[in-house]
Design a protein around this nucleic acid. Structure first.
Lengths: 172, 172
DNA sequence: TATTGTTATACTCTATAACTATA
DNA sequence: TATAGTTATAGAGTATAACAATA
């Protein structure tokens, strides 16, 4: 089974030429084969999503990665840095840098793990938990906006499938 | 309407603890609230997808951005650099760098646009078209693999919704 | 005056290797 | 010996400003 866009059917939603890209003529490029590459679409959707999130989180002094880390630290998961590294798909050294920044702002704390003295558990401070909560409210509200392009009855279905892909990619 | 994962339901597919992450304990982090953020899931799915594509394109001497650009140049779209900039969501200066690289390898050519002497149309050479075709075959095959986690009957639906999100994000 | 392509620059992100302390 | 955290460094990706040629 082959999944792809119908040939010659640029998915340009409303045909009005008043949109930004329409004026530049970039609409025509949607007819090129890349627009039926799942990886390309995923990358483009993510780029748009990241730009949105970047603006959204800026007032909170957070970026996408520090946001994710802070929200996890504010939960009762009590993750070690190694676990954060695996889960967020970031190198351990990047986790160090992120936690350093958040710790300098007194949003998170490194706690010793009594069961393994090598490991350090990252937990949010009260300030951090409050910030995480407020930021997440904003993100969730924006996520709803984000799904406006999809028919309301199918959003949950899309979300579930996206989650399935995010959890574990099949090994090539 | 709120779209989110059922609380306390980590989407860990098969419960076998033999998977990579299960051993590290990162599975537990799926219970944290971020796993119901659409933006987070999209970013993670994209990270997995990019890693896959990166390995896949390496033998062709391409990366995700140069791949997309080359495939468009190999189509009959005849894009200007400005159009590529808009479509790929890259700064004009980045397009310059990408085209420089591909041109040095004689995969694409800059052609003058008779209708606007400022603009330069990027077209693939014969070598470039051949490489684009072979790379794209590999990408499409891998895309099919990628969707294995989704029920077969719903893959096309997911693809269509992903496309809708990739085309135009609603302005916040 | 506005736009296309270009150069230059700085900043963020990503990937890798080596070191330390614990296991 | 293997793993958790850390440091250092280089490369890739991203964002911005300024400039020449053309519209």
């Amino acid at each position: 089974m082959t999944i792809q866009a119908a040939p010659g059917t640029p998915p340009v939603g409303n045909g009005s030429p008043t949109a930004d890209e329409a004026e530049t003529g970039a609409d025509r490029l949607w007819q090129s084969p890349v627009s039926s590459d799942a990886a390309f679409l995923l990358a483009r959707a993510n780029a748009l999503s990241l730009a949105r999130l970047h603006d959204l989180l800026e007032p909170f002094g957070l970026r996408t990665r520090s946001y994710s880390l802070l929200v996890i630290a504010a939960s009762d998961a009590r993750p070690s840095q190694r676990e954060l590294s695996d889960f967020l798909r970031l190198d351990p050294s990047q986790i160090v840098a992120l936690v350093d920044q958040l710790e300098a702002r007194e949003l998170v704390r490194r706690e010793a793990d009594p069961r393994d003295r090598r490991a350090k558990v990252v937990v949010a401070t009260d300030t951090g938990r409050d910030l995480a909560h407020r930021a997440r409210e904003a993100v969730l509200a924006s996520d709803q906006q984000w799904f406006t392009s999809l028919p309301e009855g199918e959003r949950q279905r899309f979300f579930d499938m996206l989650q399935a892909l995010a959890v574990a990619a099949p090994e090539a």
